[in-house]
C-alpha cells in the first residue's frame, strides 16, 4: 500500500486501526510502522473523527427513556401519537392545501401560531417531496 492508497483508505475507513477492515489492515499498519508521513496522515484523520464525535455530543438524557416507555406502553397519547410527525399524519388529510395556505398567511401576517401546527404544515408539504437517500 502506498501513501495515495493509504490516504483513500483512511478517508473511507477512518483513523482508528481497530475499525480498519481486516483484509487491508495489515498493509496499512505496515506502512504506518515505517513511514512518518503515513502516521501524520492517520493522526489528521483521527482528529477529524474526534471532532465529529464532539459535534455529536449530547447532555444527559434526563427522563427521556421513561417518557418513551410511558408513551409506548401505557399512556393514552400513544394511541393518538402525539409526536409532531404523528399529529401531522392525523391532520394531514384534513388540512391539505388549506394548511399550507394558513401557514403562508400566518407568516405574512406575522401571527403567532402553535408550534405543533407549524410542524404539521411543514410535514404535510415535506412529505410530498419525501424520499430516502
Amino acid at each position: 500500500m502506498d501513501r495515495d492508497q493509504f490516504e483513500q483508505f483512511l478517508l473511507a475507513h477512518g483513523g482508528d486501526p481497530d475499525r480498519w477492515p481486516h483484509g487491508r489492515r495489515d498493509a496499512a499498519l505496515a506502512l504506518v510502522a515505517t513511514d512518518d508521513e503515513a502516521r501524520r496522515m492517520a493522526a489528521a484523520i483521527g482528529h477529524v473523527d474526534r471532532s465529529v464525535q464532539a459535534a455529536a455530543a449530547v447532555g444527559p438524557a434526563g427522563d427521556l427513556a421513561a417518557r418513551i416507555l410511558a408513551i409506548a406502553t401505557g399512556d393514552e397519547r400513544a394511541i393518538f401519537d402525539v409526536t409532531p410527525a404523528g399529529i401531522a399524519g392525523v391532520l394531514a388529510g384534513s388540512l391539505g392545501l388549506a394548511g399550507i395556505g394558513y401557514a403562508v398567511t400566518a407568516a405574512v401576517a406575522g401571527l403567532i401560531v402553535p408550534a405543533a401546527l407549524l410542524d404539521t404544515v411543514a410535514t404535510v408539504v415535506a412529505s410530498g417531496v419525501a424520499g430516502g437517500f
Binding site: 403562508v104 408550534a115 411543514a122 410535514t123 419525501a130 430516502g132
Partner: peptide, 28 residues
C-alpha cells in the same frame, strides 16, 4: 433514525423558506 432526521431537516428548511422558523425560534 436517518429517515426521521431527513424529515426533520425538510420541515426545518420549509419553515425557513416561508419564514415560520423565526416565529418558532422565539417560542422555543
Amino acid at each position: 433514525t436517518a429517515n426521521r432526521c431527513i424529515d426533520h431537516m425538510r420541515r426545518r428548511r420549509l419553515k425557513s423558506w416561508v419564514g415560520l422558523d423565526k416565529v418558532e425560534a422565539v417560542m422555543a
